[in-house]
Design a protein around this nucleic acid. Structure first.
Lengths: 162, 162
DNA sequence: ATTATTGCAAACTATTTGCAAGTGA
DNA sequence: TCACTTGCAAATAGTTTGCAATAAT
């Protein structure tokens, strides 16, 4: 669970794990939710993960500390956190719905490893160009994602999970 | 195509319904599939639709002509056509998996109406810029989609389906 | 005639809901 | 305390599979 080395400052906006945890707990608080020990652990799990986690991944990790945790609760908390914008959800065509901590502090897009799903952010946004779009839609939002194989997985393609 | 530089020729690449039908049937043929009457109808349905269709949508439309069609068959055909690249699948966060005819003739991106899901294509692609990406990923592909409300739905928001 | 395709039913997976017991503020 | 949260079990939705009947080539 260590951070990637320094060097590129693309990650200038990346939050430290403790920042992420604090953001998530603050958001829960402001929404009037109780901070249970389990939710604290949930925040810790997402703060420590670069990539996406499926409900089952989260369940498995929570199970370590709370052997009797129910899927029910996992789903509910994931959904609630997503609705609040604290988590970001994404549907992988072959892996179903997954979640990751959402940086709500600035606009950015994602570079996603198709092998291990480790995700980096970058600031370039194609929407800032004056796009000549068809059809007079009233634009609401957009999505720009780039998929590839991260350096680590290029060297060791068998390492499916980090 | 036209030499007239002015005006919007965004739809220059759009295929006519009959072209789309032919493309789909050809693709099935080349893959060694039998062209059943039902699959012909399937092609017709997608050729006539601007937006995305859920398995249920397709099932409902097929049911008109084949009252005893089974979900089973719908799913199988949708999946096979997707695997072949004839259909494009997309997971809407609140509507699940949906399908639409895929233009395999040129690279483009989508402008999607969040109300009726009518989809227009445009040629601008952010990947042609020399992007300064983090992390030395080996880039495989990308996705760029813009969401908005189409002109029609802006005027009549209650018209949920076209 | 031969083999792919279809429809039915049942299996499966992922996700959601109802309610009593437990827990945080 | 008192309402929120949790876990269990069961319900639901979405999708896939097995197999006999059917239809395309």
């Amino acid at each position: 669970m260590s951070e990637q080395g320094s060097g590129h400052d693309h990650a200038a906006h990346a939050q430290s794990p403790s920042e992420t945890i604090q953001d998530m707990l603050n958001a829960m608080n402001q929404a009037g939710w109780r901070i249970t020990d389990q939710r604290r652990t949930l925040a810790r799990i997402f703060a420590a993960t670069d990539g996406y986690l499926s409900p089952k991944d989260v369940y498995d990790q929570l199970s370590v500390k709370y052997p009797s945790v129910s899927f029910n609760t996992v789903y509910r908390n994931l959904r609630m956190l997503s609705d609040m914008g604290v988590l970001e959800q994404f549907y992988f065509m072959d892996g179903g719905l997954k979640f990751k901590a959402n940086c709500i502090k600035h606009h950015h897009h994602h570079l996603i490893c198709t092998n291990c799903e480790k995700t980096l952010t970058f600031d370039y946004c194609p929407m800032k160009e004056s796009l000549d779009l068809p059809g007079r839609y009233r634009i609401l939002n957009h999505r720009f994602e780039i998929y590839g194989v991260c350096e680590q997985c290029q060297q060791d393609p068998s390492a499916k999970e980090i």
